[in-house]
Nucleic acid binder design. Structure first.
Lengths: 193, 193
DNA sequence: CGTCTATTTGAATGTACTCAAAAGCGGTGG
DNA sequence: CCACCGCTTTTGAGTACATTCAAATAGACG
């Protein structure tokens, strides 16, 4: 098993000794999800933190009218989970499925708690990790509040250029909070430039 | 100085010994902000985590057209900061001012780092605290994506009933991402029920 | 190759905005 | 304590951004 990418991700915020690395990787489990397969269904309990080593996951929410709303995409080097469900052990409100054949490393909740005890540094890692995720979300909120759909699309395109071709436009539209039809007209419009 | 409320807040996630409580409170500083006064201006560096013991703070963002967008309100028992600025030491992108005469307890960044070393449990406190803030923000994003302005208003009213009277409607409109004029018509409409 | 889903296109519609003017409210000073 | 000034809220008319619905086209998968 190749732990290189996850260790590199961890070392963005904390430095691990060899022994600590060992403890950590011994708690990880590998999993492969086929395209269109599910990592987490609504009403299951989210029992893992998941790190993507290959492929792409989509986290979305199904509203009361049965419409899907994409919260985010997790490509290589990103984490995914339904944090609410993970922390409370209540049924998930989010679904996570695979847009491509995907490979992940997972750590179970109980093992993560064990890890916090044995290597308290990880408490710090996840604090910093979620603080940064919090900042990114905050930016998304302010941007949604202050921009038109067109500006949001252009910004998305600019910020995640690789995503524009990699993900179905329907999913991008959902992420941006607009209809696929309208995104289609926006793309046509912006293609002229 | 009365530290009761902040200690109670902390004990939502961790349990402190007397000694630890002592260390923690010794690092806190009291500050009073008059209504309309600033806790943080754009381009200052955010050097504190701030806990509100009385009154109300407003955290907002000024867009490129000079328009304000309210990210959130911090009343008693809530925290406030520009986390981006706090973590990076870069100039703040958010402003924080007081909607009422407000009293806060603050911990400076260096003291917080000292605290993390002396009482590592606080690493855990802030991890859980921000994980929960992250969940709340995620809910806000999904809700904004899946609801009309009217539904968002009714939900806000339902979720924070005390806020509806306490905060100027202009600020609530900004938080909801709508114009004050439109909120006015929504309120008139919902008053009939 | 055929089916199913995604994307494009266009017309009609609606939600929410802009602009403008009037009314209400609160704070401040005389 | 009242009057005034400035800011907030209300109201309404006209408009625009984005949606809905429907139909045609393109693309992906078995």
């Amino acid at each position: 098993m190749n732990y290189e990418s996850i260790i590199k991700n961890i070392s963005k915020y904390i430095t691990l000794t060899e022994k600590e690395t060992e403890i950590f990787t011994s708690l990880l489990k590998y999993k492969a999800i086929k395209r269109k397969g599910f990592l987490l269904r609504e009403d299951e309990v989210c029992r893992h933190e998941t790190f993507v080593t290959k492929g792409c996951l989509r986290t979305y929410y199904v509203d009361q009218n049965g419409l899907e709303h994409v919260l985010g995409f997790s490509i290589e080097d990103w984490w995914a989970e339904d944090l609410y469900s993970f922390l409370t052990n209540k049924p998930a409100r989010l679904c996570i499925d695979a847009l491509e054949d995907t490979e992940v490393l997972q750590i179970e909740k109980l093992n993560l708690e064990k890890l916090y005890e044995e290597v308290p540094k990880f408490e710090r890692f996840f604090r910093l990790s979620f603080q940064n995720a919090y900042i990114a979300q905050q930016e998304r909120i302010t941007f949604n509040l202050s921009s038109t759909a067109e500006e949001r699309y252009l910004s998305f395109k600019n910020k995640y250029p690789y995503c524009e071709q990699r993900f179905p436009q329907k999913q991008i539209a959902s992420y941006l909070g607009i209809t696929p039809e309208f995104l289609s007209t926006l793309r046509k419009k912006s293609a002229g430039r």
